[in-house]
Design a protein around this nucleic acid. Sequence first.
RNA 1: GUGACCGUAGCUCAGUCGGUAGAGUCCCAGAUUGUGAUUCUGGUUGUCGCGGGUUCGAGCCCCGUCGGUCACCCCA
Length: 430
Amino acid sequence: MAKRFQSVRGFNDVLPPDTALWQQLHAVAARSFAAYGYGEIRLPLLEHTSLFARSIGEVTDIVEKEMFSFQDREGDSLTLRPEGTASCVRAGLEHGLLHNQQQRLWYAGPMFRHERPQAGRYRQFHQLGAEAYGMAGPDIDLEIIALSARLLRGLGIGGVRLELNSLGTAETRERYRAALVAFLERHADALDAESQRRLHRNPLRVLDSKSPQTQDVLREAPTIVDALDADSRAHFEALQQGLADLGIAFTVNPRLVRGLDYYSRTVFEWITDQLGAQGTVLAGGRYDGLVEQLGGSPTPAVGWACGVERLILLMKSQGGVTPESGAHVYLCALGDEAGRAARRLAEQWRDTWPQLRLIVNAGGGKLAAQLKRADRSGAQLALILGEAELADRSIQVKSLRADASGAASPPQQTLAWAELPARLGGLLES
RNA sequence: GUGACCGUAGCUCAGUCGGUAGAGUCCCAGAUUGUGAUUCUGGUUGUCGCGGGUUCGAGCCCCGUCGGUCACCCCA
């Protein structure tokens, strides 16, 4: 036997029971985005490497060691996108969508990061994202957070909390960074090794260190909220007021920073403690400087992205309604003549009821074997077409399981073909 | 990238002190020539992840490697 292939590490297949959940998720998401007037943008999976280096930040882990990059035949460095925002801004600029106008966009698709896989983290993973351009005020921050809340609610996901912070403008962040570094340097001996390393490379990341000893030190640290400029403070307070108006609960977490360099002012995360170490389910914030940084005119922007695999894990663990995707009806046919008639009838029925999920037995087999397949398919009804039925244009209708009301299965019936519409129609309504 | 634990039939797993490779399930056939799900009978299924070492003999011990899971790190 030839050696069998395996999927590339961290790249997963999604199989039929789960694909139904994915479809449900995408249906809910599409409805949620449409409810706020967001239009879908489809972006390529591959971009020039420098796009990500310029937008995400040269010293972030993503750019330094997690990108799938390679040289194409012309020698250009290309990268499988590690996130969606950079591509979205690039596409917006390339097509003139962002100049002096407002845009509400969403996207969905795979992202790629070369990390060690673990629960809720894969090398190819999927994100849904929303981005809003050309609106500077807290009202659009509020809208996009409300959209995220509606999405999570629509998926039946509970047990998540919203955390919020403001990073201020680039200038206040610079001022705060200096103050924080000064503070941390005084206490460098008390920090864990990882935080000491980050102290000068990316000091804000020290704030969300998991080390208890470092968190002890941080209790006395200056907070970014205190360093906010007046405009950022007013923006942040208006957002909090708006969330209260909409009844969206949140907590301000002054230690919340995000890993990507382009954020400014509002940052937020929806967090769960039901996914082991990967608690962040959906996260985003404002990135007012990025469009200009990528060559556009100054354009305010805000957005978020969520991890589809993480949402799926939550939907599963919280026992949400599994969408019904099995067949309604399994059609058994005995002999060549009945088989031809069955395939012809099945096409007619599918024309008549577009929602009907009908499996026609293939591969022959005696009736016992066909009924066994019918049972395994999950179908509610088996239809049996043999030579006797074919001769008088009738069909046997056999119930394979108790119906939704729990009543005992009705006995097997013989129906004329003409009588079948009423019977199947009733099945489709339930 | 670092660490811990785990890799035996399509699936879930057992395998004692190093001594012939096992169970359940699934699938197929029959009991039942046109009745599933229940029952009974029979049958198919293996590079014990891979490579090397120790040994008369390795699924079991040792080294390496690949893969999986979880954690660190990072992030969605």
